[in-house]
Amino acid sequence: MRPARIVVPETAKVGEIVEIKALIQHPMVTGHTAAGANTEPRDIIHTLTVTYDGAEIFRADFMPGIAANPYVAFTTVATVTGDIVFTWTDDKSEVTTAARTLRVP
């Protein structure tokens, strides 16, 4: 598990569009250098999936062009109180999950 940081509003009204921002610590090793010589094999987070109350709301395919310690922001419509769960998977099959609860009173 890698350090990760998810920022979600504490509460939202039903139907409100909320912005979700997330960071994770990962070097995103590209596997190539400017000179074209391989130094370290590629090791990047290739997939991020996000579920909200159990259903997938967002998915991303990362390539080596995504910056180290990847940042992503997107929106979702608040429906019910539930967990927003992030799952990042890297080339070494290391999986990091982190979650935040969005309360919808």
Binding site: P3, L23, Q25, Y71
Partner: peptide, 13 residues
Amino acid sequence: DLARNRGMLWVDQ
């Protein structure tokens, strides 16, 4: 913006 500031990953650690 502390939601985007990647230094906060280390602060959390």
